[in-house]
Write a protein that binds this DNA or RNA. Structure first.
Lengths: 138, 138
DNA sequence: TATAAAAAAGCAACATTGTTGCAAAATTTA
DNA sequence: TAAATTTTGCAACAATGTTGCTTTTTTATA
């Protein structure tokens, strides 16, 4: 796995650093998505908050992770299993937020539906977030 | 319209105050959705930030407005045209965020699609947010 | 309509979250 | 291994969100 992590960083032309490895490992070991705050907690005090902000930013730009919109001002991030390229995600799956355990999942098998928009509107991306009770909590 | 605004407040068992009237008017006069920050700017300095927070909270609880999730840590709010009841929204429309003009619209005529979730997942709500170029910008 | 009760607003203080510039440290390149 | 490049940590700051409490406003009632 460690190998894998370094591969991912290198193939995205990123320096391999302890912080990036650790954050990436968090995403890979994790079934759910992570908010900035979650990561901060899991990283302990060895890493600066600013580093985490910047790492999440480059990971997102590179297409290593993607963002999940939320209504609670806590954007979540999740690893892109599809092979996304820099600046162009193609994660067409939907997301699920459990209101009991508060976890956010990528439902990789559920594809974003086609949606017919009114004339004049042109969608580049469609995000679907379902809220309810997840598998583990029901 | 003024009448209308007071009606809305009263029918939700809320005291009619200058701040609530003004915020509600903003939503009614507005085609797009508003983030807390937008409202703060439009309200000028006559109203306290805290009042705006609390007003948005009660309006949301009462079902007068609904939240729109976002990936930029700036939750938007919009007036509920459907007659939502306290604690139970039924706004089954989707939202559109224009990446050019940055406005967020409720596409009232576009209904949230039915989505088949994996076994065990039970959705209480499904949010769809499309991003792209809106009618006015295209 | 005046008054009491209830609700909301304002204020202050604070906590949390996010941003920026710059010097020090680590990583990569040659 | 040394130089160049990149990343980190730190500090300072800005913006956003929260809480308790007092004053003001609104509503209900006499």
């Amino acid at each position: 796995m460690k190998r894998n992590i370094q591969e991912i960083l290198k193939s995205n032309r990123l320096s391999v650093t302890a912080g990036r490895e650790k954050i990436l490992r968090l995403f890979l070991e994790q079934s759910g998505a992570l908010a900035h705050g979650d990561i901060e907690k899991k990283m302990g005090s060895n890493f600066d908050r600013v580093t985490i902000y910047r790492t999440l930013q480059v990971f997102t730009e590179k297409g290593i992770i993607h963002t999940i919109p939320s209504a609670d001002n806590a954007v979540r991030y999740a690893f892109c299993k599809d092979n996304c390229e820099e600046g162009h995600h193609h994660d067409h799956h939907i997301h699920f937020m459990c209101s009991r355990c508060k976890k956010t999942y990528c439902l990789d098998d559920v594809v974003t539906p086609d949606i017919r928009l009114p004339k004049g509107y042109n969608a580049a991306q469609i995000e679907v977030v379902a809220t309810g009770i997840c598998k583990n909590c029901s």
